[in-house]
Design a protein around this nucleic acid. Structure first.
Lengths: 337, 337
DNA sequence: CCGCATCACTGAACCGGGTAAGTTGTGGAG
DNA sequence: CTCCACAACTTACCCGGTTCAGTGATGCGG
C-alpha cells in the first residue's frame, strides 16, 4: 500500500505542494475555501505527514526521549516508572508526540544515548530522572542545547527546568504522625544514596527527628530492591533496641520489610509500624495494607511532559513543584504496644 | 552546537558525500585506506547519521513501536511489561534501534496508532501484545504490510510471526504438582477472558482436571488487578466446599489472594496453597514466598525483538516457541491439612 | 486610470543521507 | 601498444515536507 504524500493531495486538489503545506499547517497563504478542500482530501485519503521529511526540513521530530537507568529487575516491579510513563503519554499523545525509550546500565551510557539522539535529530527533548548531585548529564544537555526537564530535586540543574515534589515536607509529616501515635524509635530504609531526592529526604528526616528529640533515628541505605529492603529490615529488627516504626523509601522495600516482620513473628502494626513511600496498588494489596506517602505519579509525569513541550517550543520554564505528597493511613501503622 | 553531517566529513576527507556514505555503510566503492580515514574522522567529530534523512531516503527509520493497551494502574504494577521492554532493549539497543512507546485505552486506538505510525514512516515494525481471538489489529497490519511479531498465542495470526510460550504445558504441570501434593479441589483465577493466552490456559486447565478426575475445578475470570484478584479469592473461599489450592494467572492477583487468605485467618500453605503465574520479584517478596510458574520474560522480549528485526530485514520468520515455563516451588504450596 | 498593496497561489531551493549512473585511473591480458 | 575490466571514486537526483522569493489577479484610494 502506497503512503499518500502532500504531492498526491496537491494533484487531487489541483494546487501546488506549497499550498497544501500551508493549508495543513494552518499557515496563511491559502483561502478558506481551498484550505477546506485540501483538508477534506487529506482526511479522505488518510494522510499523515512523513515525520522524517518533516524533521529533515528543520521542523520538530515530534518525539521526546526517556532513558531508564536501573537494573531490569527493579524496573519491572517499581510502579513508579510506569506511572510516570503513562503520565507523559497523556500529554504527548494529545499532541501526537512520540515517546522514545531506552534502558541503559550507567549514567555514562545515558550521556552517550543523549548524544546519539541529538546527532540523529531523533528527538526534540529529553526527560531526565534519577538526578544526582553534580549529575554528569546536565552539562552535556547544556552543551548540546537539548531541551530537557529534570524530574526530582530540588537541586542545582542550572538553566534546566525541574519538576519536584516536596519530599522534605512529606517525610516530616510521616515522622510527626508516628510520634503522635506514640513512637519514639523510628528508623528509615532509604533508596540509592547518591540520588538527590534520597539526600533531601535523609536531611529532612534527620532534621525532624532532631527537632522532636528522637534518638536512634537511623537511616539504613538500600537500593529500592526487595532483597536490600529485607536485609536492611533484618538488620534493624535483630538488635536489642529495635525500632517500633520504619519508613521505607519505596513500596517494594516496604512490602519486603513487612514479610520479614511476619517471618520473625512480629505483628504489624502491633510490634512494628510500617510507612511506605509512593502509594501504589501494591500497598493495598498486602495484609495489612500499608500506610503510604501518596502522590499522583501520573499527574507528576503529565506535568513534566507539559513543561518539556514548553521548553521545546522555546518558552522558558522555571522550577515547578508538583502536586503535594500526602499521608494515607492504612492498617500498617498503630500506637506501639 | 552544529550537528556534523556527511558533508562535513567529506570536506575534511577531501572526497565526495557519496564516498562518505559508502564508507560509513560498509558498501563497496571505496578503498580500505579511504574508508578508515573517513571512519576515523567520523569518530573524531562525533558523527551520527541524521535519522530523519536516512528514513526519508527510503531506508529504515531504525525504530520499532510498541503500544500498551491496559489501564495505567495495572501497567504500573505488572512486572511483565517492563520485563518485556528491557528484553526488547537488549536486542534493539545493540543495533541502535529506538523503541517508541504509546499507551492507549482500546484496541481501536491501537489500530489508529499503527496507521499513524505507518503514515509517518516513524517505525519499521511493531510488537503486538495481548492478542485476542479475531484480533482487529491483524488485518490492519497485513493491509499496511507493516512488519510485526505477535507475543502470545499460539493462535491464528495469518502470515504474522508469533512468539509464544507453552502455557498449556505449564498449567498442566502446576495442576499435576498440586495433585501430587494431595490436592483434589483446585481452582483458578484467570486474567482477562478474551485474551488468547487466557483461553489457551483455561482450556488446558479444564482438560488436565478432567483427565485427573478433579471436579469443582472452576476458573473465575478476573482482570489481572489486585482488586479483582481479591474479589475472586473471597468468592472462592467463602463457599462451604472451598478449594485447597488456587492458581492465579498473574503474580499481582496471587499476592492479593494471599492477603485475602491471611485476612480470613487461613494459613498459607496449611489451609490454602497458592501458585502464581509469572515469577517476578514480587513472589519472593511476600511471606510466605509464592510458588510460581517462572519464565524468563526478558529473554522472551529479546527473542521477540530479534524476530521483528528479522521480519524487517525481509527474512521470513515462523512461529517460535519461547523458553520453557517451569514451576518454581516456594513456601506457598504444601500438602493440604 | 494609474500605482500600490494585498491575496492566493506557484516554483524552486533546501534539509541530509542513499544510490544509480557516469567518469577517471590503473593493471593485466592479448 | 591497445583494449578491457575493474576499482575508486564523483555527479546528480531522489525521498517528502517546509519555506521563501516571486507572480498574476484583484481591490482600492486618489
Amino acid at each position: 500500500m502506497k503512503r499518500p504524500t502532500i504531492a498526491d493531495i496537491a494533484r487531487r486538489a489541483g494546487v501546488s505542494k506549497g499550498a497544501v503545506s500551508y493549508a495543513l499547517n494552518g499557515q496563511p497563504g491559502v483561502s478558506e475555501a481551498t484550505r477546506k478542500r485540501i483538508l477534506s482530501i487529506a482526511e479522505e485519503i488518510g494522510f499523515n505527514a512523513n515525520s522524517a521529511a518533516r524533521a529533515l526540513s528543520g521542523a520538530r521530530a515530534r518525539a521526546v526521549g526517556l532513558t531508564l537507568c536501573r537494573p531490569a529487575r527493579i524496573l519491572g516491579i517499581e510502579p513508579w516508572f510506569m506511572g510516570l510513563i503513562s503520565g507523559f503519554e497523556a500529554e504527548l499523545g494529545a499532541r501526537s508526540y512520540a515517546l522514545t525509550l531506552q534502558v541503559v546500565a550507567t549514567p555514562e551510557q545515558e550521556v552517550e544515548v543523549y548524544r546519539r539522539w541529538w546527532g540523529e535529530r531523533r528527538i526534540d527533548g529529553v526527560i531526565v530522572t534519577d538526578i544526582r548531585e553534580d549529575d554528569i548529564r546536565i552539562p552535556v544537555l547544556q552543551q548540546l542545547q537539548l531541551p530537557a526537564v529534570v524530574i526530582g530535586g530540588p537541586g542545582d540543574t542550572g538553566p534546566i527546568a525541574q519538576i519536584w515534589s516536596d519530599d522534605a515536607g512529606a517525610i516530616t509529616e510521616a515522622v510527626r504522625y508516628l510520634v503522635a501515635l506514640g513512637h519514639h524509635k523510628i528508623a528509615r530504609v532509604s533508596g540509592v544514596a547518591d540520588l538527590l531526592h534520597t539526600q533531601n529526604r535523609t536531611k529532612a528526616f534527620e532534621n525532624v527527628c532532631a527537632a522532636l528529640g528522637l534518638d536512634n533515628a537511623i537511616t539504613i541505605p538500600a537500593d529500592y530492591t526487595g532483597e536490600e529492603g529485607s536485609r536492611a529490615t533484618r538488620r534493624l529488627l535483630i538488635g536489642g533496641d529495635r525500632p517500633t516504626a520504619i519508613i521505607y523509601d519505596n513500596d517494594v522495600m516496604a512490602v519486603a520489610g513487612l514479610a520479614v516482620a511476619q517471618e520473625m513473628g512480629l505483628s504489624v502494626p502491633g510490634d512494628l509500624s510500617i510507612v511506605a513511600w509512593d502509594d501504589s496498588p501494591l500497598c493495598s494489596l498486602v495484609h495489612p495494607p500499608l500506610t503510604a506517602l501518596s502522590r499522583d505519579i501520573s499527574a507528576y509525569g503529565a506535568q513534566a511532559a507539559l513543561e518539556l513541550l514548553n521548553a521545546i517550543d522555546g518558552r522558558t520554564v522555571g522550577n515547578v513543584e508538583a502536586g503535594r505528597v500526602h499521608l494515607t493511613p492504612r492498617g500498617s501503622t498503630a500506637p506501639p504496644r
